[in-house]
Design a protein around this nucleic acid. Structure first.
Length: 366
DNA sequence: TAACCGTGGAG
DNA sequence: TCTCCAAGGTT
């Protein structure tokens, strides 16, 4: 609980000035040329930080470029249709990030005159902006000396300062924030924060850190003690639970396919999918279940066709095993079902699908 | 606090 | 194939 005392102990005898200078000078020399580093536009910094949450740089780059091209500023994103935003996010995962980002951008547009707030009190109230993102935007876009503690920072500092707290525990982040508040450069908080993250990504990597290339090697307690591979301490998460699903790609006489919009909260919220249901053993064969559920759920008579394929969709905390069938349907779904549409192959391109359903379609088109 | 929320790549 | 990971946030 007493972080103040703990962090004071941790920094006793540590050469903060030397560490800070070596880190920042290394970052100036070695930083990667990334699209969101071309300027410090707070909006672009914000978009990049949201995309980078739990996502690798190489994955983000093409999404960032395309997103900024479509929504170059606060106003354009605030006025965009949510479906367009989700389509731009398609395949990137954690889709609530996209919906929260647009919601927060709309608030900035309406309540802050389109200017991203430059203080923690206001910016941290925005949807999808937590402690890390608050610090990242403030330090990178506005030069405010606020900690930005992510996984990289906790790993790097666990090693440099030989901290053995479990970084998987939420409470541990606060200790690192307290440490950073004592360490961060007042002259260049942006490069200090980015330097820690860049070092974590490029040198002080999780499994085999390149200590011989490290600009802060001489400051690193773990290196001196030869324990860098034991750090950081991180407890393991529970394994994912498995769920069996059945899904169908159904086409009518006019070449239209039936797709369904998922609910606005929870897993894959507001994304579009082919009809799919949790499999229940007591309801007969998979094929029979699908036929009967299409009647129950959509009021549609279907003719079942062939088995198509199995698709496995692995989430962080869940695994879907999906048996996919093809079939035909007749008639139209109830008019009040706004979450169900009939689309041609051409029109389908405008809808955002999760990767598993994109893969179903690819199999279907083979 | 711990569970929930995606995806693709590395080892 | 399996586990872990990656610039976290929300509930």
């Amino acid at each position: 609980m007493d972080n103040k005392q703990t962090q004071h102990e941790l920094l006793k005898g540590f050469e903060i000035d030397g560490f800070r200078n070596d880190l920042i000078n290394w970052f100036i020399q070695e930083q990667r040329d990334l699209p969101w580093r071309k300027d410090q536009d707070p909006y672009k910094v914000w978009v990049s930080e949201i995309m980078l949450q739990q996502t690798k740089v190489d994955t983000v780059i093409p999404y960032f470029n395309s997103f900024i091209e479509q929504f170059p500023n606060i106003e354009s994103l605030a006025n965009a249709a949510e479906d367009k935003v989700l389509k731009a996010w398609e395949g990137l995962g954690y889709y609530s990030r996209a919906r929260n980002l647009q919601s927060a951008v709309r608030e900035v547009y309406e309540s802050y005159g389109g200017v991203v707030p430059n203080n923690a009190a206001e910016i941290s109230t925005l949807k999808g902006v937590g402690p890390y993102t608050t610090g990242a935007i403030l330090s990178i876009a506005y030069g405010v000396p606020e900690p930005a503690v992510d996984g990289n920072v906790m790993r790097v500092l666990s090693r440099v300062l030989h901290i053995r707290e479990d970084i998987a525990k939420p409470k541990t982040r606060k200790l690192f924030e307290a440490v950073i508040r004592d360490m961060i450069s007042r002259d260049n908080p942006s490069f200090f924060n980015q330097g820690l993250m860049e070092l974590g990504a490029m040198v002080c990597t999780p499994t085999s850190p390149s200590c011989m290339l490290c600009p802060v090697q001489e400051h690193c307690r773990a290196f001196h003690e030869g324990v860098q591979r034991e750090l950081p301490i991180k407890s393991k998460k529970k394994s994912a639970k498995q769920v069996s699903l059945v899904a169908g790609i159904f086409k009518n006489e006019e070449g239209q396919y039936l797709i369904h919009k998922r609910p606005s909260e929870g897993l894959l919220a507001n994304l579009w999918v082919f009809p799919n249901f949790i499999k229940l053993d007591e309801l007969g064969t998979t094929k029979q279940q699908l036929e009967s559920l299409m009647k129950t759920e959509y009021g549609l008579d279907v003719e079942m066709g062939d088995y198509l394929c199995d698709i496995r969709h692995v989430f962080t905390h869940l695994v879907w095993d999906i048996n996919v069938y093809v079939g035909t349907f007749h008639g139209t779904p109830p008019a009040d079902r706004k979450d169900v549409v009939l689309v041609t192959e051409e029109e389908m391109l405008e809808y955002a699908f999760p990767v598993s359903h994109q893969n179903m379609w690819k199999e279907y088109k083979k």
